[in-house]
Design a protein around this nucleic acid. Sequence first.
DNA 1: TTAACATTGTTATTAAAATAACAGTAATTT
DNA 2: AAATTACTGTTATTTTAATAACAATGTTAA
Lengths: 207, 207
Amino acid sequence: MTRRLPDKTVERLSQYRRALLNYLSGGKHHIFSHEIANLLHITAVQVRRDIMLIGYTGTLRQGYDVKELIDIIGKIIDTKEGQKVAVIGIGNLGRAIMGYFSGKRTRLTIVAAFDSNPEKVDKIYAGVPCYHSEKMMEIIRNEGISIAVISVPGEYAETVAQDLIMAGIKGIVNFSPKPLNVPQHVYLQEFDMLTMLEKVAYFVKKS
Amino acid sequence: MTRRLPDKTVERLSQYRRALLNYLSGGKHHIFSHEIANLLHITAVQVRRDIMLIGYTGTLRQGYDVKELIDIIGKIIDTKEGQKVAVIGIGNLGRAIMGYFSGKRTRLTIVAAFDSNPEKVDKIYAGVPCYHSEKMMEIIRNEGISIAVISVPGEYAETVAQDLIMAGIKGIVNFSPKPLNVPQHVYLQEFDMLTMLEKVAYFVKKS
DNA sequence: TTAACATTGTTATTAAAATAACAGTAATTT
DNA sequence: AAATTACTGTTATTTTAATAACAATGTTAA
């Protein structure tokens, strides 16, 4: 249907929506591109361009209808049926991720967590049941989980990813410091904290 | 001294170094560009280009001297004296970050953590003392901390950032879902998990 | 009624990043 | 000795993202 949007535009759409939901709760119904821009600390042109790419169009004197825009973004980002997410590794990071999610109503639902520590298995974290890693492939297949968050220590990341892919996972967010190799049909987002911190340190040093 | 390197190159240099340290511990002393590429699942050209940008040069038949390359990357990324880092907000995420760091010997040292929860104040997390948020500005100034990691809930992120900047922080990694606005002399790295997950979901849906 | 203004939507340009192309060269093979 | 091979280092090209420029238009002001 719609042409594939640029990566960065998709990221911003997600942020627009969150900002707009918040803005809406303040009782305002219309918003200008430069107001959206201020919320995210970017430029108005970029906002308008992104909105152009998704084919929505505002009105000249009032700007954009907040509710409409939220809906349109939803139609682009979400699927009707929703998508199921699993979190692998319930250390501090895994729990942090699940904590961020609980409460947010979104079309993404974390339906299962996995860990190999018997003390964690069969407990509930932020409303999500934790299963033993041995059951991972089975549950992912049976539940039709399409997205996985890897938050295990680096040394396990690779084999976990292998299993996930064999079980039919379509998208992975990798928080481990170990770079992953995935086939083309799997979308991978790396998320490496140590690298990011070292990068910041480099540019701090330079300035 | 060296010209400012591209953002992405700096990220990869950090990853090269980690991979090389690991490789070195396997007893190998030389490495080819395509071998580095395999470790990170990128192309050999990209590796060679990055290495060209930092001015290092390998030998034709042996490739790169692993130890030398590690040292050169260190000279570029690290400062002699090291840089001090503070973590603001000791929830699951804050603890995860400190956990990742403990053990890694690097020129970046987390020297202080801050939280407003009295139960956490004056405790030690992963070897790092936690102080009350009220003391944040003072300690940052006195200790000469130049980098901060924000892992507080979104609603506090903005004021925390303000305070950090007033206290003289030069680089910020923001894990909160609230976009920050910082003056030009402060380097900001946003790190928004919800957005990234929604992006992955979008591309999974598309594929 | 006309001019000035504030806003959107779109095209054009620039900047950043990745990829491709290829020249150069030491070692090895024929 | 010449050809081949397997690399590096660098320039050229392409792709992606961001920014700038500007036409179009309803609204307000003169």
